[in-house]
């Protein structure tokens, strides 16, 4: 089949899912009483006074069918409503807060994958022996940990050892630097921007604040990768071409690393897509614990304060993100494993 045809086929398959997801969200929205639902249609702060008129204008107390086209139009125009928590239109607030979240993922994702692969290989090669048991205990403990609990423990530990509680993206002193006119924002990521601006104290400070959330996210998501890598390696090691490799007289490490591992990595690529979902979910909690001003913290506050527009907007966006990341992963998979393209 060829890579291009495969990509087109996959994209076409996504469309009904997106449509269905939109309908699902609409159904969820319908559950909300009309008064709160009106918030989904608010564009500017002024509109908040005129909720009744909004209800009439969009027929929010009429039948669902009438509302659907209207609601759809709102979404496509980019109006996801007004968030009380963020004090602004949902879309704008989300985009303003994304860089913080991306910064965490930027560091956590590679670490999760690298550690996950290394530990998974170790676990598989020494199956049922001590390294295996230790690694599995670490990984299982990792994802059994409630993210908020781990976060609070780390916070407390840093306080006990250093005397300060590290929360937020940057400390107060650096906050002033970032808000000052001398600072140029390029990406919204304090680490990158700090380097571009030449202010390494900002970079260091940002890294200091990133460390704990990154540790939490990495620990919890690492386990999934370790487990998959382990079973994938174990399966690859039973394959016949391993016997061939041995019969060629290759060193055992070479057999494992060159022959088994590359085949075992293939399924792990797919789980990278699911990992995105796991991280997004985990970030909601983690950012809250560390008061990290990212999308996750905003979403958590929306949930707590029943800010409907915020919650719905966040759900739609993460859903979209998840679907796209899975699509990318599927394409990557077909690229790496030539056999997949035939099916």
């Amino acid at each position: 089949m060829g890579l291009r045809e495969y990509i087109i086929r996959r994209i076409i398959m996504i469309i009904p899912i997106i449509i269905g997801a939109v309908i699902l969200i609409f159904a969820v929205v319908q559950l909300i009483p009309p008064g709160s639902r009106a918030l989904l249609y608010v564009r500017t702060e002024r509109d908040l006074q005129f909720l009744d008129q909004i209800i009439k204008a969009h027929k929010l107390d009429a039948s669902p069918v009438e509302q659907f086209a209207d609601w759809l139009r709102q979404i496509l125009e980019g109006n996801f409503g007004w968030t009380r928590v963020g004090r602004g239109p949902v879309l704008n607030v989300m985009f303003a807060k994304w860089p913080a979240t991306i910064e965490i993922v930027m560091f956590a994702a590679p670490l999760t994958i690298i550690f996950g692969i290394i530990l998974g290989v170790i676990s598989a090669v020494h199956r049922d022996k001590l390294p295996d048991h230790i690694t599995r205990l670490i990984s299982i403990a990792g994802y059994s940990l409630p993210s908020f609990w781990l976060g609070l423990i780390l916070l407390s530990l840093t306080y006990v050892t250093t005397g300060t509680v590290i929360t937020g993206r940057v400390s107060n002193s650096v906050q002033n630097i970032v808000k000052s006119p001398a600072w140029h924002t390029y990406t919204g990521l304090y680490t990158i921007d700090g380097i571009i601006n030449g202010r390494f104290d900002v970079v260091l400070d940002a890294l200091k604040h990133l460390a704990l959330p990154v540790i939490v996210i990495t620990t919890i998501n690492m386990a999934g990768i370790i487990r998959l890598m382990r079973s994938s390696m174990l399966e690859a090691l039973t394959k016949n071409y391993i016997i061939t490799a041995k019969a060629k007289g290759l060193k055992n490490t070479k057999v494992i690393n060159k022959h088994a591992r590359r085949n075992a990595l293939i399924p792990v690529v797919t789980i990278a897509g699911l990992m995105v979902a796991g991280m997004l979910s985990g970030l909601v909690i983690t950012e809250t614990v560390f008061a990290f001003e990212g999308v996750g913290q905003w979403a958590a506050q929306c949930a707590t304060q029943l800010d409907i527009a915020g919650v719905i907007g966040f759900t739609i966006f993460t859903g979209l993100l998840f679907v796209i990341s899975n699509l990318i992963v599927d394409i990557l998979y077909a690229y790496i494993d030539p056999r997949i393209r035939l099916g």
């Binding site: 394959k239 016949n240 071409y241 016997i243 061939t244 490799a245 041995k246 019969a247 060629k248 007289g249 290759l250 060193k251 055992n252 022959h259 590359r262 085949n263 293939i266 494993d337 056999r339």
Partner: peptide, 28 residues
């Protein structure tokens, strides 16, 4: 020793297997 046997495998004694495509590594 394993080290010594490895030198013989593939060089002095080598093997051909039954289902060739299963015994070849698919990604190389």
């Amino acid at each position: 020793h394993e080290e010594a046997i490895r030198k013989i495998r593939g060089k002095d004694i080598s093997m051909v297997f039954q289902e060739p495509r299963a015994y070849l590594n698919p990604v190389y």
